[in-house]
Amino acid sequence: MMPKFQAVTGGVLRAVDRTTDTLALTGLAAMVVVVSWQVFGRFVLSDSPPWAPETALVLLPWLGLLGVAIGVREHAHIGVTFVADRLPRRARTAVRWLTPALFLVFGIYLVVQGWQLTLLTMNSTLPATGLPTAVQYAPMPVAGVLVCVYSALQLLNVETGRGALATPEDGEEGEEESEARDDR
């Protein structure tokens, strides 16, 4: 690939990674805030906000599905290596492509059927917040697109994993930091 093309796609990918990870981390932090507020409201203010448990719950599928995509990028999804490691070398190479190929299929499923599900639940509501039930299913198509992108890249032998999540603070050098995962 031409260096310039690589630089542009690299920039786009980094932006995608950052958006994904910022969304996930914000969601995780927001869940803690919401549930803590629920406790504070009930115990201190004696006013239990009915939207709180529902909001925390709506965030969980978002976290879970974005996690599916992040896990594809970072190879965080656990598999059983016991048998595959004992296969002959050629079979091992073939097996290496199987997982990204199947993730691509699953990503397409998430996009297509997740979109159907989102449309289907557009007209019903959640009891406390009144939000459309579709907010629970919208993470399927969103994460589906990301799963497709990451698995397709892996099929093209392009690794974008960084062994950690892309965060606003890790700056341009973030790409090179691949050992950040176990830095405790």
Binding site: R42, S46, D47, S48, P50, W51, P53, E54, P127, A128, G130
Partner: peptide
């Protein structure tokens, strides 16, 4: 009194109208 009610704002409002506190909880 903190009374657990069914999910939904109307249920919380009901207990509040009666003078208690409505709590939604799993």
């Amino acid at each position: 009194q903190d009374i657990r009610v069914l999910p939904g704002t109307v249920n919380v409002e009901m207990v509040e109208a009666m003078g208690g506190s409505g709590v939604t909880m799993d």
